[in-house]
Amino acid sequence: MTRTPLLLAGLMAAALSGIASAQTGAVTHEVQRDVNQQQRIENGLQSGALTTKEASSLEKQTAKVDRMEANAMKNGSVSPQEQARIQNAQNRVSQDIARDTHNGRIGNPDSASSQRTQADVQRNINQETRIRNGVQNGSLTNRETARLERGQAHVDRTEARAGRNGHVGAGEQRAIDRTENHASGGIYREKHNGRQRG
């Protein structure tokens, strides 16, 4: 009789481990896709295939995706329905990146505005990569990842507002830098607070 409860406990532990592993995979996939899309925006700016205004519009869309991810993860797990909604939103962003990079409009990658936007998008790539790495190595829980994605959404919105007129000025750049610094500090704190993914 004592074998049955032990066997059941072992099966439950295996099932929970499988669920946790699937959650980690789903979250890692979503954050990796954020990295990839930011990289595509960066490539478009560097090649001149994207204007500052187009990149700003794309950052506004990525802010919505980041908020969706944050809302989905805030309870510690992502349901299949939430995952499907996030993937649909990421697909729309991906299609818009493709459309904007092939619409014939030419940006000037050497302009001060484009250079500022490129630096901001590169920092987005770096910060999303840090989040992805924290999810993969277990130093970030889903709730922590949710808070960090909410911070990334704030960064993306700040970038979108700054470039919506097609120009990012030095003062706007300083405001973006402050927002990025705050988000970066949050990533460091969450990754080093001793909590581990269960």
Rank of each mutant, 00 (worst) to 15 (best):
Pro5Tyr: 02
Leu8Ser: 05
Leu11Phe: 06
Ser17Phe: 12
Ile19Phe: 14
Ala20Cys: 05
Ala22His: 06
Ala22Phe: 09
Gln23Pro: 01
Gln23Arg: 03
Gln23Ala: 07
Thr24Met: 01
Gly25Val: 02
Gly25Cys: 02
Ala26Asn: 10
His29Tyr: 04
Glu30Cys: 08
Arg33Leu: 02
Asn36Ile: 06
Asn36Thr: 08
Glu42Gln: 15
Glu42Thr: 06
Asn43Ile: 04
Leu45Asn: 08
Gln46Gly: 12
Gln46Cys: 02
Leu50Gln: 09
Thr51Ile: 08
Lys53Val: 05
Ala55Met: 07
Ala55Ile: 07
Ser57Gln: 13
Ser57Met: 05
Lys60Leu: 15
Thr62Asp: 12
Thr62Tyr: 00
Thr62Trp: 00
Ala63Cys: 04
Ala63Phe: 07
Ala63Val: 11
Ala63Asp: 10
Glu69Arg: 04
Glu69Ile: 14
Ala70Leu: 03
Asn71Thr: 05
Met73Glu: 13
Lys74Glu: 08
Lys74Trp: 05
Asn75Ala: 10
Gly76Ala: 01
Val78Trp: 11
Val78Asn: 13
Pro80Val: 08
Glu82Ala: 10
Ala84Lys: 15
Ala89Met: 08
Arg92Val: 12
Arg92Gln: 15
Val93Lys: 07
Ser94Tyr: 02
Ser94Leu: 00
Ile97Glu: 02
Thr101Asp: 01
His102Leu: 11
Asn103Cys: 11
Arg105Gly: 04
Pro109Gln: 02
Gln115Val: 02
Gln115Thr: 09
Gln115Ile: 02
Thr117Lys: 01
Thr117Cys: 00
Asp120Asn: 14
Arg123Gln: 15
Arg123Asp: 13
Asn126Thr: 13
Gln127Ala: 04
Gln127Asp: 12
Glu128Ile: 00
Arg130Tyr: 02
Ile131Ala: 03
Ile131Lys: 01
Arg132Cys: 00
Gln136Asn: 14
Asn137Ser: 12
Asn137Gly: 11
Gly138Val: 05
Thr141Glu: 00
Asn142Phe: 01
Arg143Ser: 09
Ala146Leu: 08
Arg147Trp: 07
Leu148Asn: 06
Arg150Phe: 04
His154Val: 00
Val155Met: 04
Asp156Gly: 00
Asp156Glu: 07
Gly166Val: 07
Val168Phe: 02
Gly169Leu: 03
Gly169Ser: 12
Gly169Ile: 03
Ala170Ser: 15
Gly171Cys: 04
Gly171Asp: 14
Gln173Thr: 14
Arg174Ile: 08
Ala175Asp: 09
Ile176Pro: 14
Thr179Ala: 14
Thr179Gln: 14
Glu180Met: 07
His182Gln: 09
His182Tyr: 07
Ala183Ile: 09
Ser184His: 11
Gly185Val: 06
Ile187Gly: 11
Arg189Asn: 14
Arg189Gln: 15
Lys191Tyr: 00
His192Arg: 11
Gly194Tyr: 05
Gly198Phe: 07
